[in-house]
């Protein structure tokens, strides 16, 4: 049943302009990051790692969270418009599957966005003629970043389900990301979902988190995702639908 719901969610994205955003925002991050790197080569000596600090900062702390929030708002706006909640919630699909199908589609989209960003990073490094070997840690950052994306998506999706406005949840997301930076600096990043992206993608510290920390990171992501999904599903189940 979940598979069918996911297929239905996929169909809704046809002829949609959301694809544009999925390509444009990572490209913008790379462009700005590369420009920064290029202009500050005097102080940035660590080649791939230095490039990563620049591109991932713009991507992970700004464009990616915005992208997640936009996708969530978009997926919900499809239902908020034209009374679609009525037909969706009167279909023989459990509220849990309605939510999880959307989260799954977001997971798939964000996976491709992460891969696309990785390719752009690689391409940019080659263009800038970085001579050291490509750091394999990046793969880990991309994957852990993806996990954090899903955590944030589970929250944003819940917000967008609730708030009919397109922009408000995106604004909330931006505020939360800045708060996340603060939490990260206070060493509380693991306990604030929006900081997980900073940790996972190795944005501020290019050390690869190890062993127990890795485990904590994965557990916290899982916990947050389950918790926020549960809240949204519970709400979807128990409140009146206004279409």
């Amino acid at each position: 049943m979940l598979k069918r719901s996911i297929a239905a969610e996929g169909l809704k994205l046809r002829h949609s302009r959301i694809w544009l955003i999925l390509f444009v925002l990572p490209s913008l991050s790379i462009l700005i990051g590369c420009a920064n790197y290029y202009l500050n080569q005097g102080v940035l000596h660590q080649e791939w790692y230095s490039l990563w600090t620049q591109v991932s900062l713009f991507y992970g702390e700004f464009f990616l969270p915005i992208l997640i929030a936009i996708c969530c708002s978009y997926l919900c706006r499809l239902e908020h418009q034209n009374h679609n909640w009525n037909s969706l919630m009167a279909a023989p699909i459990s509220p849990a599957h309605v939510f999880l199908a959307k989260l799954a589609v977001l997971g798939i989209l964000l996976f491709f966005v992460q891969i696309f960003f990785l390719l752009l990073y690689y391409g940019a490094g080659k263009l800038l003629q970085l001579s050291s070997p490509f750091p394999l840690e990046t793969l880990g950052w991309i994957f852990k970043g993806w996990l954090a994306c899903i955590t944030i998506a589970s929250i944003q999706l819940g917000l967008s389900l609730r708030i009919r406005s397109f922009a408000t949840p995106i604004g909330i997301c931006l505020c939360a990301v800045f708060m996340g930076l603060g939490m990260y600096l206070l060493k509380l990043g693991m306990f604030f979902p929006y900081s997980l992206l900073t940790i996972g993608m190795g944005i501020l510290q290019q050390k690869c988190i190890m062993g127990s920390e890795n485990l904590l990171f994965i557990i916290m992501n899982l916990l947050f995702t389950i918790l926020f999904s549960f809240i949204s599903i519970y709400r979807l189940k128990n409140t009146d639908i206004t279409a």
Partner: peptide, 24 residues
């Protein structure tokens, strides 16, 4: 059911709308 006004995804064709309902 058809409650209040009809539900539809405006950016999709009639057939695609039916396909979504077919999946569900």
């Amino acid at each position: 059911s058809l409650i209040e006004s009809p539900s539809y995804y405006g950016h999709l064709t009639g057939l695609e709308n039916l396909r979504i309902m077919q999946r569900l």
